[in-house]
Computed example of a mutant assay.
Amino acid sequence: MPFFNSLSPAQRRVLGWSALSLAALLLLWLLAPVLSPFVAATVLAYVLAPLVDRLARRLPRVLAVMLVELLMLLVAASLLLLLVPIVTKELPLLREQLPLLAGKLNDGLAPWLQRLGVPIAFDVPTIKAFVLEHFGDQAGNWLTTLLGSVRIGGSVLLALVGNLVLIPVVLFYLLLDWPQMMQRLWSLVPPSARARVGEFLGECDQLLGHYLRGQLLVMAALALFYTVALALAGFDLALPLGVFTGVAVFVPYVGFGLGLVLTLLAGVLQFGTLYPLLAVALVFGLGQMLESFVLTPRLIGERIGLSPLMVIFALLAFGHLLGFVGVLVALPLSAVALVALARLQRSYLQSGLYRG
């Protein structure tokens, strides 16, 4: 291969690592449905391994892994259970309040909009019939529909249940053998390249670890703030809404917007006045200022380089290409790409091409 022979050793290394990366992405794309539980367990193992290592200094590693995994399962179950009161309480309120709200809007807002040249009117009888049909006594038909969809898409349900069972099992063995696996992978790196590879992986680990730890602290602080603030504002669902909003901010802007909509809906259904609009605007405005000007700069920092827009783009792009697996590997691969681009930029600025 004349072209390959004409390259310098450094260019050959770059070409080889690029080909290896493309092959890995192609393999992920082809095997994404099968790899989902294994990739999810690997990402969780990377996050939880430091905690297991600390506990393993005082306890047998098997016991440390079991304690950490049990704690993770309890946290995940608690977060899922937070959605139950939101659904069970808002659906009956929605059935009762939505026709009344439509009538108030029709009597108060519609004439004002018509004076401004916007002809609009709410068909209150149709809205009431729709609500009674879908949220009334016939709501039990949802169970029949759900069971029918389960029979139709049984393979999807079985795959979901299988993944939920498989992920903890794979995670247990990954955490149990994590030091040995890292040592075996490190032994595959050529001795001549270990210094450079170690430095590169160290930068990636520091970048991603700092981001994840900082983001977890931001989520915990915001969950506490929103819970306390909504409770002081008189919201009945302050705890589930506050914790859900704090956790959802992991996806920048989208999580905040979803928490805002759910809280606004809960407030309107609970109070039936304009008070929740003012309360939600004040609470979420203060929360956004707290996140943007205090928590994120102090706990994550601008030097990380993973801006909110970059996080959203990475999640959407990798999710589109690789599905659920792409969402799981979006941040790790983004951190690797960011470190690689920073190194390429430093090499370019120090090269003769830049100096002319």
Rank of each mutant, 00 (worst) to 15 (best):
V197C: 08
P190I: 10
H210K: 13
A221E: 01
Q215T: 14
L224K: 03
T227I: 06
L232M: 10
Q206T: 14
R213V: 15
L212K: 08
A231C: 11
A229K: 01
V218A: 03
L201Q: 03
P190L: 13
Y211C: 06
R213Q: 14
D205P: 06
T227P: 11
H210F: 09
P191D: 12
Q215S: 14
E203Q: 09
Y211D: 05
M219D: 03
Q215G: 06
V218I: 09
R213W: 14
Q215W: 07
L224M: 12
A221D: 04
V197Q: 00
Q206R: 14
A193Q: 12
P190W: 06
A221K: 01
G209V: 04
L212A: 13
G214A: 04
A195L: 13
V197F: 07
A231P: 07
G202E: 09
A223N: 00
E199N: 08
G198T: 06
P190K: 11
T227G: 03
F225R: 05
V189A: 05
F200T: 09
C204Q: 09
V218F: 01
G209S: 05
A193V: 11
L222W: 01
R196W: 11
Q215D: 13
V189C: 03
A223Y: 02
L232W: 08
H210I: 10
L224V: 15
G202W: 02
D205M: 08
S192W: 12
L224R: 05
D205I: 05
V218D: 01
A221V: 00
L208E: 02
G198Y: 00
R196Y: 10
L232V: 14
A193P: 03
L217D: 10
T227F: 10
V189H: 02
L232K: 15
C204G: 06
P190Q: 08
R196K: 12
L230A: 04
A193L: 11
S192C: 12
G202D: 02
Y226V: 04
L216W: 14
L230S: 05
R196D: 13
P190H: 09
L224C: 14
F225G: 06
Y211M: 09
G202L: 07
T227V: 03
D205Q: 11
A220T: 15
H210C: 12
A193N: 10
A221R: 01
L217N: 14
S192V: 15
M219W: 05
H210G: 12
L207Y: 02
V228W: 05
F200P: 10
E199W: 07
L230F: 11
C204F: 04
A193M: 11
E203L: 09
R194P: 04
P191R: 12
L216E: 14
L216F: 15
S192D: 15
L201E: 00
G214W: 00
G202V: 10
L224H: 09
A231E: 11
C204K: 07
L216H: 07
V218P: 01
L216N: 13
P191G: 09
V228D: 06
G202S: 10
A223S: 02
V197T: 13
R194F: 06
V228N: 05
L208F: 13
F200H: 14
A229M: 04
V197S: 10
D205W: 11
A195I: 13
